[in-house]
């Protein structure tokens, strides 16, 4: 996806994704399909089926659903994962100091740290601005696709605010860039 300022996830960076689990999963898709490993910490609610439909290679996906409530254990868990796993998603809340230490560790280990909430010191923050579904009506049809606007903001090379329109999910559950202007949203 050409959404991030450098064209994709960059090793060593920290990216926070707010307000959309499917956007978070879509970011894992191409990297895991190319042979990278991913781990998701503290998100017992992650939809693995949706992940597979978005293109995540789930056999290279490890889940740590409940890293515990002790902040020290959470930090050690995430740090251990950053040592060996290419992409680490953190869903547990962490203190700002811990967040900075983990961001530094990701940079040092050349891993990508992703967070499902805002993260102090993140290089890029992605946010879903608008999302309109099509496919369902008054008791008819089935959810087919959602047209969303993603906004990226960040520091350094990423300081320029950028946006992109995506189909997330596109029909069939994958993700695509939405090229033409949104058609009239059906039956809403």
């Amino acid at each position: 996806m050409d959404l991030l300022p450098w064209g994709g996830l960059r090793r060593g960076s920290t990216v926070s994704v707010r307000g959309s689990t499917s956007l978070l999963l879509a970011l894992l898709a191409s990297a895991t399909a190319e042979g990278c490993w991913a781990a998701v910490v503290g998100m017992p609610q992650i939809g693995v089926l949706a992940a597979a439909e978005l293109g995540v290679a789930v056999h290279r996906l490890a889940l740590v659903p409940r890293p515990g409530t002790d902040p020290a254990t959470v930090e050690r868990t995430v740090a251990a994962l950053l040592d060996g796993v290419d992409l680490v998603v953190v869903g547990s809340p962490v203190a700002p100091n811990t967040a900075r230490r983990l961001t530094a560790r990701a940079r040092q280990r050349r891993a990508v740290l992703l967070s499902s909430a805002s993260w102090p010191g993140s290089d890029v923050e992605l946010r879903l601005e608008r999302g309109t579904w099509s496919g369902v009506g008054e008791g008819a049809g089935v959810l087919r696709e959602r047209r969303v606007s993603v906004h990226a903001s960040g520091r350094g090379a990423a300081a320029r605010v950028r946006g992109a329109d995506l189909l997330l999910p596109a029909p069939g559950g994958s993700v695509r860039i939405a090229h033409h202007a949104p058609a009239a949203v059906e039956a809403v």
Binding site: L63, R76, D86
Partner: peptide, 20 residues
Amino acid sequence: AARALVHVQGLLGPRGVVTP
């Protein structure tokens, strides 16, 4: 990745790390 995941299993117990 396997080494890291085994490390985390050491911290959280064998059921602490799962694959779908």
